[in-house]
């Protein structure tokens, strides 16, 4: 079997587990994101100019927090069922294992994020125009970097009982570059007429993705080393 097939087998396993558990965790996470948006709408006057200016920030807060919850689940079931050991013992390269978990996390994250984006557009009264596709692209790219570091950190904290708090504490400071690039890109799309620096945002996101993916790929071996 070639590497691509192996990666997909591992990712598909995670997706199937999620599907068979009647998407309960998935829906709960989504509901949490919805709640964040609603709280922001209560906190600020939704019609005002100031809220509109702050809306890219609100969107990314609503995207990041549920994302961390989803990442935390990635290794939780593996630990609970004792299946991580089995995966490590299987004749699969650690890098392949990492990429498999990463692909599953990435698919979850993108699906959740797109649904949040939908709610965001409706709540904050933005138009469904082709410009939204650029935000989708930013989400897809940012998710690569987020899962790149997120998968390795989720594996690290999975055995600690305070993992729910620990993962965002570890993850958010490291992800500052990705968040900044995605945020400024979103500001550019939602608030400005001409998008002169959107290209830069996208280029930076791709660059950060490559760095974080490479770091995760190389260091994952040391996290599941036993």
């Amino acid at each position: 079997m070639n590497h691509i097939t192996l990666i997909w087998i591992i990712a598909e396993k995670d997706l199937r587990i999620e599907y068979r558990s009647r998407q309960q965790a998935f829906l709960t996470t989504l509901f949490f994101a919805l709640l964040i948006l609603v709280i922001f709408i209560f906190a600020f006057d939704p019609g005002s100019r100031a809220t509109r200016d702050a809306s890219p920030g609100i969107l990314w807060v609503a995207l990041l927090f549920p994302g961390v919850i989803q990442l935390n689940r990635s290794f939780q079931t593996e630990i609970e069922e004792g299946t991580l050991c089995g995966m490590i013992l299987s004749p699969v390269d650690r890098g392949v294992l990492f990429l498999g978990k990463l692909v599953a996390n990435w698919i979850f994250l993108v699906i959740i994020d797109l649904l949040i984006l939908l709610a965001f557009v409706i709540f904050f009264n933005f138009a469904f125009s082709s410009q939204l596709l650029w935000i989708v692209l930013l989400i897809v790219l940012a998710s690569v970097g987020i899962t790149g570091v997120g998968t390795i950190f989720a594996a690290m904290v999975s055995s600690i009982h305070t993992r729910e708090v620990l993962l965002p504490i570890l993850l958010f400071p490291i992800l500052v570059p990705i968040i900044l690039a995605a945020l400024s890109g979103t500001q550019e799309i939602l608030l400005r007429e001409q998008m002169q620096s959107l290209n830069r945002s996208i280029q930076l996101l791709v660059g950060f993705d490559v760095i974080f993916l490479a770091a995760g790929f190389l260091l994952f071996e040391y996290v599941v080393g036993d």
Binding site: V149, I152, F153, M156, L170, P173, I174, V176, P177, I211, A215, L219, Y222, V223
Partner: peptide
Amino acid sequence: VFGIIGFLD
């Protein structure tokens, strides 16, 4: 691992 990623960041 965290120390290395943190410093590269």
